[in-house]
Amino acid sequence: MIEFVKGEVVYHEADYLAVDVRGLGHQVFVPNPFAFTDGEEVMLYTHFVVREDAQLLYGFKTKRERNLFRLLLEVSGVGPKAALAMLTHMSPEALVRAIHIEDVKTLTKLPGVGKKTAQRLVLDLKDKLAKLGWEPSLDLAAETASLPPVVPNAERDVIDALLALGYNEEEAEWAVRESGQRIDASVSTEEWIKKALQAMMKR
């Protein structure tokens, strides 16, 4: 079992980081790769998945977030990719709150989550989360700070990020157009991705 990885981010793609750990490059799937910058030193708490055709490493900034990811995996029909998408689209606090108040409507807006899966999330996790001390947060806007500035072709970067999260090209382009009307040139690519995801949640 790999408990954590500590090293330098060499580069990031739409759904993973390449982390250099003493000369060995690890592919680590994380909720939001765009929240990291190349050259940054990171420590990620990991969850290792072994399949017949692959060995996959998922990483999280905190043990608490990793534990929530593992709880999501206990729900029937929720695999690592779906659980990671949930934590990409919603902060852990927002996700816990939606489950706590049985907000099935919000949960079904997550990629790959239908009504039955949303109901299972509530049924299977509401009591578990309470027992583990997960209190729903009233501040749903708490997100990461210190994001890098917008780079050229940021619009394409946002679309590619949405495609990697399971949206189709038409949905991604709509979200970029919709969110782009309410941002200015100083906004970071990561912030634009968040705005685009919020637009999709309200669609």
Rank of each mutant, 00 (worst) to 15 (best):
M1Y: 04
F4D: 07
F4G: 03
V5F: 03
K6L: 03
G7R: 01
E8K: 14
E8M: 03
V9I: 15
V10F: 04
E13C: 00
A14P: 00
A14T: 14
Y16N: 05
Y16R: 13
L17N: 02
A18P: 00
V19A: 06
V19N: 05
R22L: 09
G23A: 04
L24N: 10
H26N: 12
V28F: 10
V28A: 07
F29R: 04
V30P: 04
P33D: 01
P33W: 02
D38P: 03
G39M: 02
V42Q: 04
V50I: 15
R51Y: 05
E52P: 00
D53A: 03
L56H: 01
L57A: 00
F60Q: 06
K61R: 15
T62K: 09
T62F: 06
K63V: 11
N67Q: 14
R70D: 12
L73G: 04
V75I: 12
V75H: 05
V78I: 15
A82E: 05
A85Q: 09
A85S: 13
M86F: 12
M86N: 11
L87H: 11
M90S: 11
P92Y: 07
E93K: 13
E93D: 15
A94D: 14
A94N: 07
L95Y: 10
V96T: 08
A98H: 10
A98K: 07
I99W: 07
H100N: 14
E102S: 15
V104I: 15
T106G: 06
G112I: 10
V113F: 14
K115A: 10
T117W: 04
A118F: 07
Q119V: 07
R120N: 03
V122F: 10
L123W: 03
D124R: 09
K126M: 00
K126C: 00
K128C: 05
L129R: 00
A130M: 09
L132R: 14
L132I: 08
W134T: 01
E135N: 08
E135Y: 03
P136N: 03
S137C: 01
L138F: 06
D139P: 00
D139G: 00
L140A: 11
L140N: 01
A142N: 04
A142F: 08
T144D: 08
T144W: 12
A145F: 10
S146F: 13
L147F: 09
L147M: 10
V150Y: 06
N153T: 02
A154T: 14
E155I: 02
E155V: 13
R156K: 15
D157A: 09
V158W: 05
D160M: 07
L162W: 06
L162D: 07
G166M: 02
G166S: 07
G166C: 06
E169N: 13
E169A: 14
E169R: 15
W174C: 10
W174R: 15
A175Y: 09
A175H: 14
V176R: 12
G180H: 09
Q181P: 02
I183H: 09
S186I: 12
S186L: 13
V187T: 13
V187Y: 12
S188V: 09
K195W: 08
Q198S: 13
Q198C: 01
M200V: 10
M200F: 11
R203F: 11
